[in-house]
């Protein structure tokens, strides 16, 4: 029976199938629905990776905004230069604070949304793992290491 390493690595060379000799594996045929589950598992891995990357990006942006808001709070209240697009605008401190806080809210909502999606993927993968390991045992590899 065959084994498929459907892995989470980005490295494409790692993402290869690992065939075991039939001696050390029970003889189970791969059915169409098994293949579909394996495919889904692989797809979810890719989605998970992408979400992880996006989340890291968003969190970095959020940190920057947090810093900006803190700086604004200890500021003297004079005009500040706000980075908008490619340039800096002279704006009042209140305007800048409001701008940053609005951005924070938007990003926070996005972070939570992606977090929920990640959760969903993990749950579904656990389900798939249970079924696939139950069927193929040690002749399939669904771990990402």
């Amino acid at each position: 029976m065959s084994a498929t390493g459907v892995m989470r690595e980005v490295n494409p060379s790692e993402d290869k199938c690992k065939a075991k000799t039939p001696d050390d594996a029970p003889d189970v045929e791969v059915r169409k629905e098994d293949q579909e589950m394996i495919n889904e598992f692989g797809r979810l891995n890719n989605q998970y990776l992408e979400l992880d990357e996006d989340l890291a990006n968003l969190k970095e942006q959020l940190e920057k905004l947090d810093d900006a808001v803190t700086e604004l709070m200890v500021g003297v209240g004079g005009p500040v230069r706000l980075s908008l697009g490619e340039a800096f605008m002279d704006v009042s401190e209140d305007y800048a604070t409001e701008h940053c806080e609005r951005k924070q809210e938007q990003l926070q909502a996005k972070v939570e949304e992606l977090g929920r999606e990640k959760e969903k993927i993990t749950t579904r993968q656990m389900e798939l793992k249970k079924v696939l390991y139950g069927r193929f045992g040690s002749s399939i590899n669904l771990e990402n290491s």
């Binding site: 065959s2 498929t4 199938c17 065939a19 000799t21 293949q35 394996i38 890719n46």
Partner: peptide, 23 residues
């Protein structure tokens, strides 16, 4: 990309099965 991922996974399994069949 998702479609392609399905295909590469299917092909990986196919190749492994062909190989094992031969063994």
């Amino acid at each position: 990309l998702e479609h392609l991922k399905n295909q590469t996974t299917t092909i990986e399994v196919n190749m492994a099965r062909l190989f094992n069949y031969d063994v």
